[in-house]
Amino acid sequence: MSTLDVVSQAGGKPANFLDVGGGASADLMATSLEVVLSDPAVRSVLVNIFGGITRGELVAQGIIEALARVEVRVPIVVRLDGTNAEEGRRILEEAAHPRIVPAATMLDAARRAVELAHEEASG
């Protein structure tokens, strides 16, 4: 919910809000992305995870799975911190998918997602 607030502060307007909840599996992550991407109004996706019970490597695997399952037409900005986040970031780096944009902090991620959404809208 705080993620929505920082997106608004960065000048963006959230199209929707999906809380993956605690302990999200890779499959839940992939399905979540499918749901979010099914909305044609979405110009960029912001994945903001600071995991406690949620494990970074599972989030990363879920994103990779989603990329294989659905056609991703917009950039996905990913901010990954917390439990097993390093492993998660490594998985995303190795995948080197052109649609995945890593971000270091929550505020950076929000700004980047809003910038990219504007670029998508005008381009």
Partner: peptide, 29 residues
């Protein structure tokens, strides 16, 4: 005691109380 990632914390003098797990991690970090 629980699921807060210990590596993001450090001993010191700020007490923190939160309704949100993720925001706890975010602000502690």
């Amino acid at each position: 005691v629980g699921i807060i990632p210990g590596e993001i914390c450090a001993p010191g003098n700020v007490g923190l109380i939160s309704r949100s797990g993720t925001l706890t991690y975010q602000i502690v970090g």
